[in-house]
Nucleic acid binder design. Structure first.
Lengths: 146, 146
DNA sequence: TCCGCTGCTCACCAGGAGGTGACCATGTCC
DNA sequence: GGACATGGTCACCTCCTGGTGAGCAGCGGA
């Protein structure tokens, strides 16, 4: 939490916006809400993103405390990212944003060119898994940064 | 609503984020939640912003349907911006973002360098004025763009 | 020995958002 | 006529974000 948090705006709302609004952060968070995912899995889920950019986004989110990173001394090395409690606390907000986005497209008669809302309330998919992850982050980082 | 909405992301949550997260948009919205403000008043409220940038932000928000612009044939000309219903519907979200921002700063032990949350629940300041504004936008645009 | 997998870094580049400063049109008042 | 206020435009520049492509380290397997 060194440099990155230094530049966060002082106003709470802007701070929150800055933290969430990376090009892929909402999508990454969405996937991590389901439970831990390894790096390659995330990459596969988002065909449009580059490895470098994915790493950047994840690093920032890690610095901001939204996700945590765990390395396993396997071969080949396995790295898993999971949403922290702080990250999980964003779910209602992302959900609200999602609904508002639809409402907005509706109001502007643009609903046709809107993709499905990929962020759904927890209940609809693996709520318990999520709660488990939120209460006891299942794994720890074994080493530092690779 | 021509060009600007064309570039909005297809995912609802990202669309919403893109619409709100301009450098000054949250602050502008906050001030407009209180009721219509003339251009010069907005400028005076935000000493850090340039005229050009303020206009840009307002134009975008207008294209996105968040604010509306009214010109009065007075001398010197008076231009008032007010939040539309769509804009007002963002208040709970901005409020949630504000609270989450504080929570986030708290979790990262950075609460000391956070300004006050300028976005408060309506009840604390002029709720009725707001409702009036939301139901019947009090004034109309007399001319087109100046 | 070479290849493959995993996760990652580095150099470089392009586009866009935001910022700076000058200038403008209208009309009032001194 | 000149100063001033309002709301605005225009040319220009800077910086940050995200994207591209190459290369690297560790280790196993053919």
């Amino acid at each position: 939490m060194s440099r990155a948090t230094k530049r966060l705006p002082m106003l709470p709302a802007e701070r929150a916006l800055k933290v969430i609004s990376g090009r892929w952060k909402a999508v990454i968070l969405y996937y991590l809400f389901d439970g831990p995912r390894r790096f390659s899995a995330l990459k596969a889920l988002m065909p449009g993103i580059t490895q470098k950019v994915l790493i950047e986004q994840l690093r920032e989110m890690e610095e901001h405390g939204l996700v945590s990173r765990a390395i396993f001394a396997e071969v080949p090395a396995r790295v898993e990212y999971s949403a922290t409690t702080l990250g999980l606390s964003l779910e209602p907000i992302l959900l609200a944003l999602c609904e508002w986005g639809q409402h907005h497209a509706d109001a502007l008669d643009e609903k046709h060119r809107l993709a499905d809302c990929i962020i759904r309330p927890r209940q609809t998919r693996g709520f318990h898994k999520l709660k488990r992850a939120a209460q006891a982050p299942p794994r720890k980082t074994i080493f530092g940064r690779m």
